[in-house]
C-alpha cells in the first residue's frame, strides 16, 4: 500500500533521514521503533507531506501512485492521515467540530468513537480542543478523530505516550478495531504496544537498521542497539 524508496531528508543542512526504504502492506499494523531523535517523527511528517519535510531525494508511492509531490490535503483526500506526537490545540473548536472535520457530522458515530477511547460523550462533545484538555485527553480525542475518519492509512506517532497504564489495553483494543478498515503505521517506544503489530522496523540515526517481526526487532533493539553509541548505528546498518 505504501512504498517508500530511498528517501532522504535534510533539515538545516543536517541529514535526518538517510535513504529510507519501507513497505507497508494493506491491512497490517506496521510498527516503527527507535531511540529518541532517530527520525521517526520526521518520517511521519514526510509521509504526510508536511511543509518543512519535503524529501531531498527519493519517492513515496501510495497504492502504486507517486505522491511525493502532493501536499497534505491531497494526501489526506487519498486516505492518508497523521496523528501528531504532540497534537495541536484549537481555541474555539469543539470536540464535536473537530471530529466532524472533512466529513458529514454524524453524531452517533462521533459518540461511539469517544466511547471507544473511554471519553464520556456527554462531558466531552462540547468541550474545546484547546489547552484546557490534559495531554492524555487530547491524545484520546486525536485517536477518536482517526476512528471517525476511517482513513486508508493512519500514521500514529506515539499514540500511547501520555496515556495512563490502565488505559493502555483500551488503546490496543482501539487499534485492533481500527485495523479492520485502516492500515496503521505505528510509532511507539513501548515494547508491549509494539507486539500488536504484524511487522516492525527499527530506525536508528536516520537509517533503517532492522526489519522483521515485532519480537525480533524489539529484542534486537534491546540487546544490540541500546548499548551502542550513535555513530555505530551506521555500522549496524552496513551489517544488514
Amino acid at each position: 500500500m505504501l512504498a517508500v524508496k530511498n528517501l532522504v531528508l535534510e533539515r538545516d543542512e543536517k541529514k535526518i533521514l538517510k535513504g529510507i526504504n519501507l513497505n507497508v502492506c494493506n491491512g497490517e499494523i506496521h510498527v516503527i521503533i527507535g531511540p529518541n531523535g532517530s527520525g521517526k517523527s520526521s518520517l511521519a511528517y514526510m509521509l504526510m507531506g508536511c511543509r518543512d519535510y519535503k524529501p531531498t531525494q527519493g519517492k513515496i508511492f501510495f497504492n502504486d501512485k507517486d505522491i511525493t509531490d502532493l501536499g497534505i490535503t491531497k494526501r489526506a483526500k487519498r486516505g492518508i492521515t497523521l496523528s501528531w506526537q504532540e497534537p495541536a490545540r484549537f481555541e474555539g473548536l469543539t470536540v464535536e467540530d473537530y471530529l466532524s472535520l472533512g466529513r458529514e457530522n454524524n453524531k452517533a458515530e462521533i459518540e461511539e468513537a469517544l466511547r471507544m477511547v473511554n471519553l464520556n460523550p456527554k462531558r466531552y462533545l462540547n468541550r474545546f480542543v484547546d489547552h484546557k484538555l490534559s495531554g492524555g485527553e487530547r491524545k484520546r480525542i486525536e485517536l477518536a478523530s482517526i476512528v471517525v475518519l476511517k482513513p486508508k492509512l493512519a500514521i500514529l506517532d506515539e499514540p500511547d505516550s501520555g496515556i495512563d497504564f490502565v488505559s493502555l489495553t483500551d488503546l490496543l483494543d482501539v487499534m485492533i478495531k481500527l485495523k479492520k478498515d485502516t492500515t496503521i503505521l505505528l510509532i511507539t517506544h513501548r515494547e508491549e504496544v509494539a507486539q500488536i503489530a504484524d511487522r516492525a522496523t527499527l530506525l536508528c540515526d536516520g537509517y533503517i537498521v532492522k526489519d522483521g517481526s515485532p519480537l525480533e526487532v524489539t529484542e534486537y533493539f534491546r540487546d544490540v542497539c541500546k548499548s551502542c553509541p550513535t555513530e555505530k548505528y551506521s555500522e549496524a546498518k552496513l551489517k544488514i
Binding site: R51, T73, W84, P87, L101, G102, S145
Partner: peptide, 15 residues
C-alpha cells in the same frame, strides 16, 4: 500555528 494548520489539512481540509 503551523501544526494546527497541518492537522486540519491532514483531515482533508484545504489550506
Amino acid at each position: 500555528d503551523k501544526k494546527g494548520l497541518e492537522t486540519l489539512m491532514a483531515h482533508g481540509l484545504e489550506k
